[in-house]
């Protein structure tokens, strides 16, 4: 795992809102993680824990308060000239949660998808532009006749496919998917997730997949980060996180998911998380520590030993 190439490094990222005012919010409070090339990193947590803000700060929709986001060896934040910014915008794209709000209702699908192509001058002739849009539509499972329609003529699942086609239009390397399936029906969710997986293999994409549906996240992600109140509390390969959750918050989150299995639902016991159980004192150095290879937990030095002991059993 160590030799894998890092595509994105996030170092001690902080995003505060209303700085200096009494209602200051620490939406992200110092998180660090890496995303490797070609992997899917899932980010889960309750609403308000800062997972969407993390995605938006990474893509520079917000200016970070502090910390660094290094993409492909370059810092995302900080001054850039037009050309650099444009170049960066092409490499990183986003898929939004609500397919009803994220497409301009007054543009035809052709122009929605081609917007990025026009900005970056990726097509030289109108014919080439149309050809590219057609092939993108086919890639995401729609057909070329759809190019001349407006968004309202499509169902939720189809709109999300248009959103995906738009993100792919500029040939990005990295896609941030912010709850891309939450607004869709169960039977359609599976279609979109399968599409995202297929595209990842075909185009060598890297995903940051933000969601609160934990079973879907586990299915699509290679590694999963769990966030709680602006902090990352646990980061581990997905199977490891589900079979051996270490941080008490992760345990509580996992125990709250209802499974489509009445037998196991009857015996399920929910674990309740109480942040006071850590009982951190002033001089405890609480940070992400590696409890076992690849499995990081936010804890103090004392807890690390406890956790490692537990793990052995």
């Amino acid at each position: 795992m160590a030799e894998r190439e890092k595509l994105l490094e996030i170092k001690n990222l902080k995003q505060y809102f209303n700085v200096g005012k009494p209602n200051m919010v620490k939406a992200i409070d110092g998180i660090s993680f890496d995303i490797y090339k070609g992997e899917t990193l899932g980010l889960v947590g309750e609403s308000g824990c800062g997972k969407s803000t993390t995605g938006r700060t990474i893509i520079r929709l917000y200016n970070a308060t502090d910390g660094e986001v290094i993409f492909d060896g370059e810092n995302v934040h900080g001054t850039k000239n037009r050309k650099q910014l444009k170049d960066f915008n092409r490499k990183m794209q986003m898929i939004f949660q609500d397919p009803y709000a994220s497409l301009n209702p007054r543009l035809k699908v052709m122009d929605i998808i081609a917007e990025g192509i026009d900005i970056h001058g990726l097509a030289k002739t109108p014919k080439e532009r149309a050809e590219r849009v057609y092939s993108l539509l086919e890639t995401v499972g729609l057909n070329r006749e759809h190019a001349n329609r407006y968004p309202h003529e499509f169902s939720g699942g189809q709109r999300q496919r248009i959103g995906i086609a738009r993100a792919l239009a500029v040939k990005p390397e990295f896609i941030i998917a912010d709850e891309p399936i939450s607004a869709l029906d169960v039977s359609i969710q599976a279609q979109v997730v399968n599409l995202l997986k297929k595209l990842q293999i075909e185009h060598g994409l890297t995903y940051l997949f933000i969601a609160h549906d934990l079973s879907m996240v586990k299915y699509i992600s290679d590694r999963i980060g769990v966030m709680y109140f602006g902090k990352l509390v646990e980061l581990a390969p997905s199977d490891d996180l589900y079979s051996n959750p270490i941080h008490p918050y992760t345990q509580s989150l996992l125990s709250a998911i209802p499974l489509p299995d009445p037998e196991s639902e009857r015996i399920r016991k929910r674990i309740i998380y109480n942040p006071n159980i850590h009982n951190y004192s002033e001089n405890d150095d609480v940070k992400m520590r590696e409890v076992r290879p690849g499995h990081f937990v936010n804890c103090s030095e004392k807890e690390v030993k406890q956790y490692q002991q537990l793990y052995k059993q």
Binding site: V186, S187, Q189, A190, Q191, V193, N194, K197, L214, S215, M216, K218, Y219, Y242, I257, L259, P260, D261
Partner: peptide, 14 residues
Amino acid sequence: SMPSLDSTEEELYA
């Protein structure tokens, strides 16, 4: 089409 937490299938049924 619902992934179970212990599923390992490569593709979801849609």
